[in-house]
Design a protein around this nucleic acid. Sequence first.
DNA 1: GTGGTCTAGACCACC
DNA 2: GTGGTCTAGACCACG
Lengths: 128, 128, 128, 128
Amino acid sequence: MFFEINPSNGVAIFEQIARQVKYAVANGALRAGELVPSVRELATRLAVNPNTVARAYRDLQADGFLEAMRGEGLRVTKQAIERSGKHRTKLLHERIRQVVVEAKQSGLTEDEFYALVDQLWKKEQIEV
Amino acid sequence: MFFEINPSNGVAIFEQIARQVKYAVANGALRAGELVPSVRELATRLAVNPNTVARAYRDLQADGFLEAMRGEGLRVTKQAIERSGKHRTKLLHERIRQVVVEAKQSGLTEDEFYALVDQLWKKEQIEV
Amino acid sequence: MFFEINPSNGVAIFEQIARQVKYAVANGALRAGELVPSVRELATRLAVNPNTVARAYRDLQADGFLEAMRGEGLRVTKQAIERSGKHRTKLLHERIRQVVVEAKQSGLTEDEFYALVDQLWKKEQIEV
Amino acid sequence: MFFEINPSNGVAIFEQIARQVKYAVANGALRAGELVPSVRELATRLAVNPNTVARAYRDLQADGFLEAMRGEGLRVTKQAIERSGKHRTKLLHERIRQVVVEAKQSGLTEDEFYALVDQLWKKEQIEV
DNA sequence: GTGGTCTAGACCACC
DNA sequence: GTGGTCTAGACCACG
């Protein structure tokens, strides 16, 4: 699991952490039943306030991605992977919708927009 | 010129105002040299505080979209329209890039992604 | 007498007018005793509000550059030209002082500053 | 870091604050990565409204001199120092140009002008 | 009438 | 604790 936090990019840190956990689940880096790093460990690893990590984990529990194992820590739920799918599809859907709206408001034609999307899809590399 | 403000959609009000002015420039609803509504007038029209409108206009001046005509008001600059193009292409580019990254991280295939984009492009209506 | 007004450069219009009258006196384009254009005429010529021209002329009277000739208009005073000298030397003095302060605060060395001044003096053309 | 605010010298307070931060960067009193005083602290120290300080800091962010560290405060960016150079050289350039124009319009000879500059450079003391 | 600045004070999210 | 947004209202210079 690979975490990269940027404290000055506008996105809340706890949100960045939560997203990255979800990504890790979505692409198999984290499997169901696996334990995530403890709050304290992750906090020191990322050089971030423990409250912030706790907040991310709390949200992930509320979303059903993590569950508390008393005395052991937090582990990835069985449903996490499927949720990961639905959840993120919904989010993606909304994100794309917004981008489409912006593109249309900017006066882009369908062709121009598709060219842009195409170019970026081909260029973008994903590190996991 | 058509302004629609949603005071609780996460985007700051001044930001919504600034964007809509930029859109209006981008699609020709506002032309170079034209005066924008006065701070006070727009404030009462949108039922927001004049300072909020002023903040939006100030940002637009900083971005080179508006310029102050002493005692007359604020008008759209000559460069506004070209800036509008460059500026927004850059923003859109970044937005699309982010969406592409998300899609890839979620494990979507190229076909799935394109299908989603296609569907949303066809559905989305723009009011100007 | 040649007037060029820029309503969106930060300097008050009445101030621009007043300065240009002073320049005209300083370089002989306007001589002592000569009448300046009437408020109305100048206002229409410059496409500005008559109040603005009136304000400029008012300040020029307060500074002793113009005097009212009842029924005739405003004419350049005898003292205008010498005042022009003193007055502007004082202003220039202050302006230069500010620039020097800025330069020092920016960490420029004496040589760098002089080089800059030299370059600009040689380059700058004056149209009267 | 030394702040001196003059609430009635024509320059807006937020502008004075912003300039002094830039100066502090330019002459090394503030280094890249360092946190600036918090909005509230500086506001009480200078006896001005927090909004005024916030305005200055906001402008500095827009200019790329500061960046927000979520929950921590605002710190000087890496690019601040180089920007400081370019930025201020450009401003100074323009200021000097204006002064040169004024001097020429006032009929000063090169020698007179240089004498004035020289005298003021030698006299002016800078406190950092 | 126009915009610009400043103050005062409230509320919010985040760390 | 941090900054960010918004409101309300005052005062100013300018046209």
